[in-house]
Each structure stands twice: as structure tokens, then as C-alpha cells.
Computed example of a mutant assay.
Amino acid sequence: IMYILIDKGKVRSECVITVENGNTVEIKNIATYPEDQGKGYAKHLINFIAKKYQNKYQILQVGTGDSPLTIPFYEKCGFKRSGKIKDFFVKNYDHPIFEAGHQLVDMIYLSKRLN
């Protein structure tokens, strides 16, 4: 399911979620235009999704690289580290992936209780 946040007639952020099981929904992708980052759009979208699904699911989770930009963002949104897939980015991509000068190696899972 894709959600799009539009403000003042312009798409600012988008989020794709999937239902993983009877208890969990997962953020598969969330993106905000670079000029709109740091303005609260992604956080607002996450809060909307959490509220929308709070009575149907127990957990909202996300998997991401161990980045100094991404992990603190999710933690500020109320997520806590809940797991890791070792060497995910090394084994599943044919080239190194970097974010903020940091090579992504492991997939870090974070989760947030919805109820």
C-alpha cells in the first residue's frame, strides 16, 4: 500500500507498507524530496500510518541500513532496534552502498508498538 503526503499541492513524501503477518506492518520504502527533508514530512507520514493501523496490528517495523542519518531518524519516531540481518547489503547488491560517507553492510530492523 502506498501513501503520499501532499502539502500545498505538491508531493512532499511517500511511503510504501506491506502487511507481514497478522501482527505486523512494515515500511518498505519511505522517501522525501531533498528540498523537503528536515521539515517533518516523513515523521508526519509515519505517525499517520501508525495511527491508521493501531487498532488492526501490533507492530510497525522497518528494515534499513546502519546509517548515521537513518537510524536516529527512526529512533526519534519512536522505533527501537529489534533485529539485524548480517551482511545484507554486501550479499544482495553488486556494488557497495554508502550513505553519509558510511558503507551500509547490515540490515537493521527497528520496530514500534502500535497499541
Score class of each variant (00 low, 15 high):
M2V: 12
I4G: 15
D7N: 14
D7G: 12
K8G: 10
K8N: 14
G9W: 15
G9T: 13
V11L: 13
R12F: 14
S13Q: 13
V16P: 08
V16E: 14
T18Q: 06
N21K: 06
V25W: 02
E26Y: 00
E26I: 03
K28P: 07
N29K: 09
N29Q: 11
T32K: 09
E35H: 11
D36T: 09
Q37R: 10
G40I: 09
G40L: 09
Y41I: 11
N47K: 09
F48R: 11
I49L: 13
N55G: 13
Q58S: 13
I59S: 01
L60R: 03
G65H: 04
P68G: 04
T70Q: 06
T70Y: 10
I71Y: 06
E75Y: 02
E75W: 02
E75L: 01
K76M: 06
K76R: 11
C77G: 08
G78H: 04
F79D: 03
K80P: 08
K80S: 06
S82T: 04
G83Q: 00
K86C: 06
D87H: 05
F88S: 05
F88C: 05
V90I: 04
V90R: 03
V90Y: 02
V90T: 04
N92C: 02
P96T: 01
P96M: 01
I97Y: 07
E99C: 03
H102C: 08
H102D: 08
D106C: 01
D106I: 00
L110I: 00
L110K: 00
K112Q: 03
R113L: 07
L114W: 03
